[in-house]
Simulated assay, not measured.
Amino acid sequence: MSPGAQGRNGGGGPLDGAVVAVAGAAGPAGRAALRRLAAAGAVVVGCDADAERLAGAVGAARDAAGGATVTGDTVDLLDPAAARAWAERIERDHGRVDGLVHLVGGWRGSRSFADTDLDDWAVLHDLLLRTVQHTSLAFDEPLRRSDRGRYVLVSAAGAGQPTAGNAAYAAAKAGAEAWTLAMADGFRKAGRAEDPDVPAAAAVILVVKALVNEEMRKAKPNARFAGFTDVDDLAGDIAAVWDRPAEELNGTRLWLTAQPERRP
């Protein structure tokens, strides 16, 4: 087991010494998650398709967390074999995998439903759904072997109440949610050897309206970003997933923004 897997910055909390993988680690939300998880004492392994941006994100998280164990792997998550090899490598190198945080994102939309471009669907299907399928299947067994396994999907409120111009995006997000809830049912049915009534791990969905970061605020200083979740706040909510027991968390949708009222 890697020496870093003993935890450096945690104070005996639920993430101290945990080994957590972050998919989509080079984006604003991924960078925030790397920093927060490392500061809580986790050994963090990020992945992204962009090697240069990933290296910057890993270095910044390592520095911010006082030399915590943060590493990065360039992985094509659209390749199921590459995703599985990544999961196997993490477990081999660190002796365990305690979490996968899915932060691979993307957005495309149209002015109206009739203007929907099915090329947008092809792109978003890959980014938002295929990567969920590949990471969940790759990490399912390693997470079951952990005593604190968590699969965390960040989704959007629009998945349950899509607007006319967001058909492709909402459909991809809804598919990702359904897939994650199926994983949660698998965890529930597996149970723990010592207590079959406790899920083997927990799969959970964090629901936001949209995300905002400091660069967006600087670019639009007069914008309100009403209902948006700051990426640093999201990172705190991700870390808090390990504070709750699997039987309470598994298969839930946790709202980080106000739930929309049902349209007539």
Results as ranks from 00 to 15, higher is better:
D140S: 10
P196G: 04
A61E: 01
I205E: 03
G12T: 09
D76Q: 04
Y169L: 11
A39K: 14
M1P: 10
A25S: 08
N213S: 13
E247F: 09
G186H: 03
G46E: 08
D237E: 15
G105F: 12
V231A: 03
A29N: 07
G99H: 08
G99S: 04
V204W: 03
D117Y: 07
V198G: 00
W242H: 11
R244G: 04
T229C: 13
P245E: 01
A176M: 07
V204N: 10
A55V: 06
A49Y: 02
A85G: 03
E248G: 01
R192F: 07
F228W: 14
L143Q: 10
R108G: 02
R35G: 00
V123Y: 06
T71P: 01
T229F: 03
E247D: 14
A200S: 15
V231F: 06
L15G: 00
D230A: 11
T71A: 11
L181C: 01
A156W: 15
L77F: 05
T131F: 02
V208N: 00
P221A: 03
A164I: 09
I205A: 00
A33D: 02
A23S: 11
D115F: 01
A170Y: 13
G72N: 08
I205C: 03
L77I: 09
L100S: 01
R36L: 02
E141M: 03
N250A: 07
S110G: 07
L78H: 13
K173R: 14
N250E: 04
F139A: 12
D185H: 10
I205N: 02
W255L: 08
G165D: 09
A114T: 14
V22H: 05
K173L: 01
T69Y: 11
E261C: 09
E248A: 13
A25C: 03
A203C: 06
R188W: 00
L211F: 06
W255C: 02
V212D: 02
S155E: 07
A49G: 15
A82L: 05
S110Q: 10
P162H: 02
R108S: 11
D232W: 01
A174C: 05
I238H: 06
G99Q: 06
T252R: 15
D48G: 10
S112P: 02
H102Y: 12
N250W: 01
T163V: 14
V101K: 07
L249S: 09
L129W: 13
T257C: 15
E88W: 00
A176S: 10
F139M: 12
D93L: 12
W86G: 00
M216L: 13
V198W: 01
A81V: 08
L127W: 09
A190Q: 14
G72T: 09
G251Q: 04
A174P: 12
L128W: 08
E261D: 15
E248M: 05
T135K: 05
F113H: 10
A82Q: 06
D93R: 14
A190R: 15
A38V: 08
K173G: 01
A201I: 08
L54K: 06
P245Q: 01
G4N: 04
A176V: 14
E141H: 12
V212T: 09
A57D: 00
R150Q: 07
F113V: 15
E88G: 11
D79V: 00
A156V: 15
G10C: 08
D50K: 10
L206A: 06
A55T: 11
A49F: 07
A51T: 08
R53Q: 14
W86L: 05
G46Q: 12
G13N: 14
G17V: 12
A23E: 06
G186A: 04
